[in-house]
Design a protein around this nucleic acid. Structure first.
Lengths: 207, 207
DNA sequence: ATGTTTACAATCATTCATGTATGTTTGTAT
DNA sequence: ATACAAACATACATGAATGATTGTAAACAT
């Protein structure tokens, strides 16, 4: 039996890791705490000691990762604001490259996108995704507005539509990639997609 | 009490309508047949008479609508194959316009994308989406390959990447639109997005 | 050395959805 | 008029997941 602080923290992590697996395999609602406990090698008692209920396990799991969206915006802010559109382009590609190498993020993200129900009265975790999405959109929009002031956006685009388009494309790209079992090269397709979009927004000639 | 054939078909429809509402509000797994029955003004007995179980209600609901993807491909095939890229562009826009005016399709689609868990051992309905997605991709790819043979694709693109990009963008657009509670003009953003992508694939100058 | 708290395990009661079985009413064919 | 089947409603039995309670061994403070 484990008693020390470190041991406790360890079982907590083991529970979370087990939860990620079980959620990924069966979906959130299809996973019982009993199954998670078994996978983690503990009883439900342990889980209930560390977490209030299943929802709290999910949010804890969710809190561990950074949403790609947040990462993109952070990257953009960290690297200054000259050429905002180029910044978005590079940030997006870089984030995709990082994500391809992080299996745990992929799994948690898959749980959120594919294995978790976005209902009307949203769960805590689902709510956070929605909020992060909205914030991401706002910041994207501002970046693009800055670009618009420097060098005019192509007439096809408004800052609003452009931000929306980038957000939708990237989220869709990720969702499809995960749903299809990573059946296509994420970075490759993503890179072409972003380059194409940003290029179009710049109003330059193609390619 | 209802006895005639038409009456029976009617309660069947009422059950499906109620199911759409309940599923939309609570997610599929969060909805009991009891709730659906109450909303429909019947008992669970009626539901079990018409359907085997909850999964069959879901697939029945699903069978009622055409996936936007299927519609796009159908449109493209129906309108011939000269200028395949332009075909894709027009078909996509038209499908979006239709979907904006069909609340029922929207709700069922929202259930599938947001309120239904895509797990490893997929449900019947989820499986159909995956299959339709794969077929859609194959047909899209062929269309684009045809375009590639006529007039070269822009060097940035391959037929594979292009098909993937369009599919991901459109699915992402729809998902975001539904998830955000239709908070932005779907057709407007979608039109810009598709035009931009197709334009880029044609290798023409922007706009 | 001892009391107390931590970190769980084990047990229990309750809820809730499901599936099934059976009852009941009404059309419909003969 | 009667028999049968369709179209449900009602009642029940079951199992699974949950949350709560209680038990307990080890760590830690005193």
């Amino acid at each position: 039996m484990r008693r020390t602080k470190e041991d406790a923290a360890r079982t907590r992590e083991e529970v979370l890791a087990a939860a990620a697996e079980i959620f990924y395999e069966n979906g959130v609602s299809g996973s019982s705490l009993e199954k998670i406990a078994q996978r983690a090698g503990v009883t439900r008692g342990a889980i209930y000691w560390h977490f209030k209920d299943k929802a709290e396990v999910l949010t804890a799991l969710h809190r561990e990762i950074r949403l790609p969206q947040e990462t993109i915006v952070d990257y953009a802010i960290a690297h200054g604001h000259d050429d905002p559109l180029g910044l978005i382009e590079n940030a997006t590609i870089e984030v995709l490259q990082i994500l391809v190498n992080d299996e745990h993020q992929q799994r948690v993200f898959a749980i959120m996108i594919l294995g978790c129900e976005f209902t009307e009265h949203l769960s805590d975790a689902a709510q956070r995704i929605v909020t992060a999405n909205a914030e991401m959109f706002g910041k994207l929009q501002k970046l693009i507005e800055m670009a618009d002031e420097r060098s005019r956006l192509a007439p096809l685009w408004t800052a609003d539509a452009a931000a929306r388009a980038i957000q939708c494309s990237m989220n869709g790209l990720l969702a499809e990639w995960l749903r299809s079992g990573k059946s296509f090269p994420l970075v490759d397709v993503g890179e072409r997609l972003v380059r194409s979009l940003i290029h179009s927004m710049r109003g330059e000639t193609s390619n």
